[in-house]
Design a protein around this nucleic acid. Structure first.
Lengths: 226, 226
DNA sequence: ACAAAAGTGTTTAGATTACACCCATGA
DNA sequence: TCATGGGTGTAATCTAAACACTTTTGT
């Protein structure tokens, strides 16, 4: 321990790339920073890591504070550690990304923070290196989406295959052939067809599906090919 | 800045998963830790991040100190931040992985540190969470190797396709069909055939190849399929 | 000429892609 | 019955994988 004392200590913060899905587009939760430096500019939601918590725990705490949600998908992106990334002090930040269902989050809490859901196509300028954090997070989400149906985290319990396709189109920022997408997904055998239909988008209506409960056991193949 | 002062500060260390390739197998550079806690147990090479350096810079510094090499492939794995991961004090560690050519490294420096190259199939017990760091690093290397010929970092300038295949077999811990591997790699168009042969492995001899200089411009396809 | 490794070719099975077509339904 | 998305089928293309075959060379 004495040996460690010759080394400097640093503030370590958490910044969360909180992604939700609404109106066929991915949205990022941002808030205007309420204190200096960069007061009023747009920022990811964050906080400082405390003495007795891990990064994962700190990120979960911040997520709960700001959205009211617990037990949601949360994964580390990476550490950002350039000395002057925060002009006010040396702060090393651990970036995380979370996928949440916008329909479930606590709107009150979000309003308290003055936070907004911003479509990822129309992001404002972000403070510090938060743009880079977002980009890395999106890249990680895409990677993850290739091998696992991580998209379920962003959709309600029951959803149509059209909704699922549009979500994947939002994640990958490109279109998929409707027929081929449907066949590919169904061939994975991870969805269960419900008898109920979603009548809101067409006269015919599209059947709802839900994720099978034992997905973990099922080997999930590659979903999209680059 | 005053606002930051209410938050705790932490030691932030770097741990490097330094991988090399020798005798058809991947090796990891380890050393017996020279100080408490866990003195004498096997450890990744590491150090503490200083006031005016980024994580990348700190990792490069440590790598140079221990192997004498500069400008080599180095990438962050992720931050490890469980509070008691180091029993002596709260230390948040940024794990990095590096790929080096064992034939080029400074053996003197490595000996000074008492470090050894250990085949990844026969790793001893490591301290703290260093085993997890290694596993994540290997997974990241595999991911990377699927889409880019990162393997070049581990081979000498000129190499045969057989050497390249064996390297990939070491990275993925499985065998590839010699004929198919050759065709796949050559079809990527990133290798240049040399007129010289490596006579050491057979009477016929295998042609040397080298990486084309403008690889970055060439779109590299998927190399192995999971 | 032969052994042994390097390198090529062929065949099959399966996946991807593009796109035409049928279906169900409310107005 | 018809317009509109929802959903299915099919043919052309590409890729992976297994494995037989040919080439080169020192002894």
């Amino acid at each position: 321990m004495e040996l460690y004392k010759i080394h400097p200590q640093h503030y370590v913060s958490i910044d969360c790339v909180i992604l939700g899905y609404q109106n066929d587009e991915l949205k990022l939760l941002l808030y205007p920073r309420g204190f200096e430096p960069s007061k009023g500019k747009w920022s990811l939601l964050g906080g400082f890591i405390q003495q007795e918590e891990s990064g994962d725990e700190a990120a979960a705490r911040i997520l709960k504070q700001t959205t009211g949600l617990e037990q949601i998908f949360l994964e580390q992106v990476e550490a950002f550690s350039v000395p002057n990334r925060d002009p006010e002090a040396r702060v090393i930040s651990l970036a995380y990304y979370a996928l949440i269902r916008i329909d479930l989050h606590d709107e009150e809490k979000v309003k308290e923070n003055g936070a907004y859901w911003v479509p990822i196509r129309k992001l404002p300028q972000l403070i510090f290196d938060h743009q880079a954090m977002f980009e890395k997070a999106l890249a990680k989400l895409q990677q993850k989406a290739v091998y696992s149906l991580v998209g379920f985290e962003l959709l309600p319990e029951k959803f149509t295959l059209i909704q699922l396709r549009k979500l994947y189109e939002a994640i990958f920022q490109r279109e998929f052939d409707p027929g081929n997408f449907r066949k590919k997904i169904l061939s994975l055998g991870v969805l269960e067809k419900l008898s109920e239909k979603d009548p809101s988008e067409s006269r015919k209506g599209a059947f709802y599906y839900k994720a099978k409960s034992n997905i973990e056991e099922i080997g999930i193949d590659r979903i999209v090919k680059f």
